[in-house]
Simulated assay, not measured.
Amino acid sequence: MSARTFVVTGASGGIGGAIAEALAARGHRLVLAGRDGARLAALAKKLPASADAVWVASDLTRADGRAALVTACADAGGVDGLVNVAGVGCFAAFERMDENAIADVVTANLTATMQLTRALLPQLLAKRGADLVNIGSTFGSLAFPGHAVYSASKFGIYGFSEALRREFADRGLCVHYLAPRATDTALNSAEVNALNGAMGNHSDSPAVVAQAVLAALDAGRSGRHYLGWPEKLFARLNLACPALIDKALAGKLALIRRHLP
């Protein structure tokens, strides 16, 4: 893949930072976005000079934050790819969540992603063969107790990606949906880490996710990509025969509830 310009959201976090480093190692130029300016500056400083990294500290749930990023991308000559990583985790009993908490998760994980993608579409469509990568989750295909709102937001990302893949199939935009399993990042609360340990769930490093993004881009075509075994099997089985997953998770409810904050 020849050198191109990618914008990576959530670059001040573990997965976003790892994706930025992997793209830079391939010789691509980068526009980095995140809420933590100090971490973005540190990341930009350690990337190779060829990355010509520009960083924008902004809150993408706000219109002015998205506008600042879109302007930075235009100033960089436009972008050939958008990697939507920014988001938040949420492990909570749904009955104890308030309206603001629900809205915050949906806005951060779904609405902001949709709005930023819409705002950057003119730049992406101007570059034939541009790539849109949306980072979802195994829980975007397999809803999990204690993750009702998070799962809903990631199911939304799955549906958004699928619709765009079909809507722009004849306009040269490659749309990739990538669903990691549990990943070692600061987004995981202590309760989530404890539950993963109790259930024996494997957790990947952010570098594993970053390499999966590169593989998706190398394929040169739109697609869906699931990480991890047996998680990818369970996600697909849930779509084909959800009653089996209902029964399996029913047996785990007591364990899950013990770890809920």
Rank of each mutant, 00 (worst) to 15 (best):
M1N: 08
F6P: 04
V8H: 11
T9W: 09
T9N: 06
A11T: 01
G13D: 01
I19E: 13
A24N: 03
G27V: 00
H28F: 00
R29N: 03
L32Y: 06
D36R: 15
A38G: 12
R39L: 10
A41M: 00
A41R: 07
A42R: 11
L43T: 10
A49N: 05
S50E: 11
D52V: 09
D52L: 08
W55Y: 15
D59G: 00
L60E: 09
R66F: 01
R66M: 06
V70D: 09
T71P: 06
A72K: 01
A72Y: 12
A72N: 04
D80E: 14
L82H: 05
V85D: 13
V85S: 10
A86P: 05
G87M: 02
V88L: 10
V88F: 02
G89V: 02
F91V: 09
F91I: 09
A92L: 08
F94H: 11
E95L: 15
R96H: 14
E99C: 13
E99Q: 14
A101M: 10
A101W: 08
V105A: 02
V106A: 07
A108N: 05
L110Q: 07
T111G: 07
A112P: 05
R118G: 10
L120S: 04
L121E: 08
P122S: 05
P122E: 06
L124Q: 01
L125C: 07
K127R: 15
R128I: 04
A130W: 04
L132E: 06
V133D: 05
I135F: 10
G136K: 08
S137M: 00
F139C: 05
L142W: 07
F144V: 05
G146K: 01
G146Y: 00
A148V: 06
A148I: 02
V149Y: 01
A152T: 13
S153I: 01
K154S: 00
G159H: 05
E162C: 03
A163L: 10
R165N: 07
E167S: 09
E167Y: 11
F168R: 15
D170E: 12
C174Y: 15
H176A: 05
L178K: 01
A182W: 02
D184V: 15
E191C: 08
E191Y: 04
N193V: 03
A194P: 07
L195S: 08
M199N: 03
N201Q: 14
S203N: 03
S205C: 12
P206E: 13
P206W: 03
A210I: 09
A212N: 06
V213Q: 04
A215G: 13
A216R: 09
A216G: 04
L217F: 01
A219N: 08
H225C: 03
Y226L: 12
L227S: 11
P230I: 07
E231M: 10
L233T: 13
L233R: 08
A235P: 03
N238D: 12
N238C: 09
P242Q: 12
A243F: 13
A243Q: 14
L249F: 13
K252W: 01
L253K: 14
A254T: 13
A254F: 01
L255I: 13
I256M: 10
H259G: 02
